[in-house]
Structure formats: C-alpha cells, structure tokens
Simulated scan of single mutants.
Amino acid sequence: MVDAADGRAAARALGLTKAYGQGDTRVVALDAVDVVIERGRFTAIMGPSGSGKSTLMHCLAGLDTATSGQIWIGDTELTGLGDRQLTRLRRDRVGFVFQAFNLLPTLTAEENITLPADIAGRRTDPAWLRQVVETLGLGDRLRHRPHELSGGQQQRVAVARALAARPELIFADEPTGNLDSRAGAEVLGFLRRSVDELAQTVVMVTHDPAAASYADLVLFLADGRLVDRLDQPTADAVLARMSGFDGPRTS
C-alpha cells in the first residue's frame, strides 16, 4: 500500500466516517475507513449491497461530506472546503461517469464531451481531445446526437466527457449497469486503456466480479469497513472473496 503522505496517492482518507440520523435511528454507512487511491491505477470498490461502497466514492469525490475524518485529493484536503471551493475542485480536478449516461439530448456527442469545459469557460486541448476520441473509438460519431447512438456508444461519450478535461481522478459509479454484456465490456476496456495509455487514475464502484477483473486492485467493504483487498484480480477470485462476506446492516 502506498503511504498516505506519498505523492503517488491520488486520493486518500483517514478515519472517514459517514453517519445518517441520530440516536436509535443512527446508521453508520462508513466506519473509520482509511484508504489510499494510488495514482495511475484502476481501483475497483466492491461489497454487498449497502456496504458503503457508493458512499465512500461520493465522499472521496467531494459529492458528499464526511461526518468525521479527513479526505484529500492530491495534496488538497476536502474537509472544511466551502461549497464554491468544492464545486471548483470537482470541475477542475475530477471526472465522473455514472450508470445513467447524463447526456444532453439536443447536443452532439462532441458538444456533450466538451460541455464541462465550455461551462467553465475553458478551451479543451485539441490534441488531448483527439487522443481521447481515438482511444474511445468515437471519431465517426462526434456529430451524432445521443438518440442516434447505441447504449455503449453513449457511455463511451460519457467516459470521453470525463477524460476531456484531463482530471486527476475519474470516478465511475456502476458505469456498465445499464449496458448489455458486450457494450459493458467495451466501456470497461476503454477505462482500462485510459489508465494504460492515457495515464489516468480510475476509481470504479461495481457489484460485478467480471467488471472488477479489469482493475489493478479491488477494495472490499462490508458494514462500512474496509475488510479486504485483492491485487491483479480475476473474476473467479473476486467472486470467491465476495462469497465470504455476510450481508450488511446498512443501506
């Protein structure tokens, strides 16, 4: 494991706790989690339903606030940042790929890809954009609108949008959940290539052992705690680890 203070840590958390409610209704979604996300690697987060995996990703990405503990993206501590500062950090340093493609139907694929930069008033680096588009195989689809694209192509546009701003981190929340197995494999392959060929850092929440097998490392959560890790995973090895976890108590 990379040391928490090492410059190779793209994101990290120390004592990360997230609780909802109070008293008898208090539910602990994350229970004093320590985690380091290594730069330039593909990390998958897995666990039973309700284990806290999506909550962990949302906290690391600055989409949700911690009840206690500390979170960093690079050398910037998120704890204590105001809403405007968090918005700027997410816009400038983080990319997101969600299960729902979240493409604007009136825009072309290219316009959807460059939309975050356009909103921020920044120009997308044309050489980088061309490299992303070529890596994702979207060169002949840039003028198409979402309804003219397959589900797999729409998700590839969403991946390109996340990559286009050249963020430090890409967070993907069940990115293949709405895709068939072939399209899902395509998207996972492109996320893998974005790490290997574009030097990106990807963190993906998934429930699918086959999807997790594309990662360099799988982190396992159960009942809001980090309970195991698996380097160089295979689908069978992930399934075997998952089968040993008891059902969670939270949702």
Score class of each variant (00 low, 15 high):
Arg123Asn: 15
Arg182Ser: 09
Gln153Cys: 01
Gly151Arg: 02
Gln153Asn: 08
Arg122Asn: 14
Leu86Trp: 02
Leu179Phe: 04
Glu148Tyr: 00
Asp173Val: 03
Arg91Tyr: 06
Leu115His: 04
Gly177Leu: 09
Glu134Pro: 10
Val133Phe: 11
Gln99Met: 14
Val159Gly: 03
Val97Met: 02
Gln99Gly: 13
Leu138Arg: 11
Glu174Trp: 09
Arg130Phe: 06
Arg145Gly: 01
Val132Asp: 05
Thr124Gln: 07
Glu134Phe: 06
Gln131Ser: 14
Thr87Arg: 08
Pro167Gly: 04
Arg88Thr: 12
Glu148Ile: 00
Val132Met: 06
Leu149Gln: 11
Gly137Arg: 06
Gln154Lys: 11
Gly177Asn: 07
Ser150Leu: 11
Gln131Lys: 10
Ile170Lys: 10
Leu129Phe: 12
Arg182Asp: 09
Asp140Phe: 03
Glu168Lys: 03
Pro146Arg: 00
Arg156Ala: 15
Ala109Glu: 09
Thr106His: 11
Glu111His: 09
Leu142Asp: 13
Asn102Cys: 02
Ala127Asp: 14
Arg93Cys: 05
Ala109Pro: 08
Thr108Lys: 12
Glu148Val: 00
Pro126Ile: 12
Gln153Leu: 06
Arg166Cys: 09
Leu86Glu: 05
Arg90Val: 05
Pro175Thr: 09
Arg90Pro: 03
Asp173Gly: 05
Pro126Ala: 12
Gly151His: 05
His147Glu: 02
Gln154Ser: 00
Gly177Trp: 07
Glu110Ser: 12
Trp128Thr: 04
Thr176Cys: 08
Val157Asp: 01
Glu168Leu: 14
Gly121Val: 11
Arg88Lys: 10
Arg123Leu: 15
Arg130Ser: 15
Thr135Cys: 08
Glu168Met: 14
Asp92Gly: 10
Ser150Phe: 09
Leu89Ser: 00
Gln85Val: 00
Asn102Trp: 04
Pro167Ala: 03
Pro105Ser: 11
Thr176Glu: 12
Pro116Phe: 00
His147Met: 03
Arg141Tyr: 14
Thr135Gly: 08
Ile170Gly: 02
Phe98Gln: 08
Phe96Glu: 06
Pro167Tyr: 06
Asp140Cys: 04
Ala120Ser: 06
Asp140Val: 05
Leu115Arg: 09
Glu111Gly: 07
Val133Asp: 13
Ala127Val: 14
Gly121Lys: 11
Leu136Cys: 10
Asp118Glu: 15
Arg141Asp: 12
Glu111Pro: 09
Arg91Leu: 05
Thr176Phe: 02
Asn102Val: 01
Trp128Asp: 07
Thr176Val: 10
Gly139Cys: 14
Gln153Ala: 08
Leu115Tyr: 11
Arg182Leu: 11
Gly95Trp: 04
Leu103Ala: 03
Asn112Met: 08
Gln153Ile: 04
Asn112His: 11
Ala164Arg: 02
Ala165Phe: 02
Leu89Met: 10
Pro167Met: 06
